[in-house]
């Protein structure tokens, strides 16, 4: 069921998972996102890059309505997941967030056991009827988070006792446990050392087979390594959006070129 706005001239194909049209975000009087149009494809890693304060994280948080929790934040325009407006009154933001999982900048496991961390989402959504089913979901999620082998013998130990990189992979496992369709990652490696970063990047590449992944990153190398599509944000505008290779080798916009060559940012 497609619910594209107006004329239908912006044809939404099956490939497109999330379509944003004329999205504007305001924090009080601050105009944080200006008229952003973007199409995020399924089974693709899309990277949002740009200098600090350019609005890339703000835009990412619009995609699962995390900005709803901020009183002064106002979102205008249309964001459609599978053609359905996620800001429509009929959409429950809580259910939406189960479908659009999120991984945060700083690893933030719950101060509970590793098992409980992963099981929490499936539990509150009633995804498992028995303990055995839940165990299965937890194992599957931890395997997808590429951390199963490291924690399978200590599932009852606190998640906060893991190393930073393990914590972040645990958070990814927690996010995929609710079987989301899209995975949003807000600078998932900025608090990690290079080895942990490499592990998470490898994991992101594997996740692409099943999910549509959107990653915000400060590191252009990381964007180049993990993404197929790249969007460059500057001062609240989406300056350029295209194939990662093209953005990094042959940017159309002079601002993009300035940024990736290190002159602004």
């Amino acid at each position: 069921m497609y619910d594209t706005p107006a004329s239908g001239k912006t044809a939404v194909t099956h490939e497109v998972k999330i379509a944003a049209r004329k999205v504007n975000v305001f924090y009080g009087d601050t105009h944080a996102i200006k008229d952003v149009d973007v199409e995020i494809e399924d089974k693709t890693v899309t990277a949002f890059i740009g200098p600090s304060g350019c609005g890339k994280s703000t835009f990412l948080r619009c995609l699962n309505r995390m900005n709803d929790t901020i009183d002064i934040c106002r979102v205008e325009g249309l964001i459609a997941l599978d053609g359905e407006d996620i800001y429509a009154p009929s959409i429950d933001p809580v259910q939406l967030r189960a479908k659009v999982g999120m991984v945060f900048q700083k690893p933030n496991p719950f101060p509970k056991s590793i098992y409980e961390n992963v099981a929490y989402g499936p539990k509150i959504h009633g995804m498992a009827r028995t303990r055995a089913e839940l165990d299965e979901i937890v194992e599957r999620a931890l395997r997808r988070g590429a951390i199963w082998d490291e924690v399978k013998d200590r599932l009852q130990e606190p998640g906060t006792g893991l190393s930073g990189g393990q914590q972040q992979r645990l958070c990814i496992a927690r996010a995929v446990a609710t079987e989301p369709e899209v995975l949003l990652m807000d600078e998932p490696c900025s608090a990690l050392d290079p080895i942990a970063t490499a592990q998470v990047e490898e994991l992101i590449d594997e996740l692409r087979e099943q999910y549509s992944v959107v990653i915000v990153t400060h590191s252009m190398q990381q964007a180049a390594r993990v993404s197929q599509k790249t969007a460059f944000f500057h001062l609240g505008n989406l300056v350029e959006f295209g194939e990662t290779g093209q953005i990094f080798t042959n940017p159309h916009d002079p601002r993009t070129e300035s940024y990736i060559t290190g002159r602004i940012g």
Binding site: N64, M66, T69, V94, Q95, L96, R97, A98, K99, G101, M102, V103, F104, K106, N108, P109, F110, P111, Y120, G121, I124, H125, C171, R174, A175, A177, T178
Partner: peptide, 18 residues
């Protein structure tokens, strides 16, 4: 209580009450 814990719970689809 750090906002990261609230975000973590909201992020997996917990309601405000949860």
């Amino acid at each position: 209580v750090p906002p990261s814990i609230r975000e973590a719970a909201l992020g997996v689809g917990a309601s405000k009450h949860q």
